[in-house]
């Protein structure tokens, strides 16, 4: 088989960074904060690269939408093994109100233009936790979808996918072309090493605008307020066992 795979990657604030909300509650602070590729998207890229190594796939195209720094994220994807990148530049206030639906429309258009057989995306991004892109892309293209995949096996003309569902696993078979979203246990993504990042600089990244893909990114939503999660209340120390029992009774636990 010689499939063409499109992988969506998102640049998000690094998972290890403590998120801070802007004082005016309009969003979170992103300036001077370490960013990296969404971990679920790393898993998606890894799966595509493994398919290429098994000679199932012929070409891997990485796609990212966002400000100019997204090129670094794409570069990481190329260093992991993608063949070329597509960067759709959306910056400033427009990027803040960009929704999964816009991304889905872009992915759907690109899938048609590039004759893609499989679209793989992370099941959700760790910043907005939407978990919508794969589903909506499949709907727009009228392709079957296999979300939250934890195992993918290619059989001619179809994929057998094990999905993570509440309290168990579900095995489904989807016909190609299809949209897959990667769950945490699908694979262990490789690290983009320095030599590979250097080599990736030779790989092409095509730059597009939403207009080129015929997608209207004018805001559909307005961010009203962004709040920090509630702070955990402090505990209290007690002198002895009797006091513990007394306190628990007062709280209605005994």
């Amino acid at each position: 088989m010689s499939l063409r795979i499109l992988v969506g990657v998102k640049r998000v604030i690094d998972y290890a960074v403590k998120i801070r909300v802007k004082p005016d509650k309009s969003g979170v602070i992103t300036e001077g904060v370490k960013h990296s590729m969404n971990p679920f998207d790393e898993i998606a890229i890894e799966e595509a690269v493994r398919m290429k190594e098994k000679k199932i796939a012929k070409e891997i195209v990485a796609f990212s939408c966002g400000p100019a720094q997204c090129q670094e994220t794409l570069r990481t994807a190329l260093a992991m093994g993608a063949d070329r990148g597509i960067h759709v530049e959306v910056a400033g206030p427009q990027y803040e109100t960009l929704q999964p639906l816009h991304i889905s429309k872009m992915l759907a258009k690109l899938a048609k233009d590039e004759q893609i057989d499989i679209i793989i995306v992370g099941k959700q991004a760790i910043d907005d936790d939407c978990n919508q892109t794969a589903q909506m892309t499949a709907a727009l293209l009228d392709w079957p979808q296999a979300t939250s995949a934890s195992k993918i096996e290619a059989k001619d003309g179809s994929l057998q996918v094990v999905r993570e569902i509440d309290g168990g696993l579900e095995t489904i078979k989807v016909k190609l072309p299809t949209v897959v979203s990667a769950d945490l246990r699908l694979n262990e993504p490789r690290y983009a090493t320095l030599p590979n990042i250097m080599k990736a600089k030779k790989k092409p990244i095509k730059k597009l605008t939403p207009k080129d893909l015929g997608v209207d990114v004018s805001p559909r939503i307005q961010i009203v307020t962004v709040e920090e999660p509630p702070v955990r209340l402090a505990g209290a120390k007690v002198e002895n066992v009797d006091m513990v029992v007394e306190k628990l009774k007062a709280l209605g636990h005994a």
Binding site: Y15, A16, P39, L184, R190, Y191, T193
Partner: peptide, 21 residues
């Protein structure tokens, strides 16, 4: 180098597992 890569991978996996699962 291999050990460090494994350390980062595991750290990320654990963080995500704790957050989402």
């Amino acid at each position: 180098i291999k050990e460090l890569e494994a350390l980062y991978m595991l750290r990320k996996y654990r963080a995500l597992k704790k957050r989402y699962y």
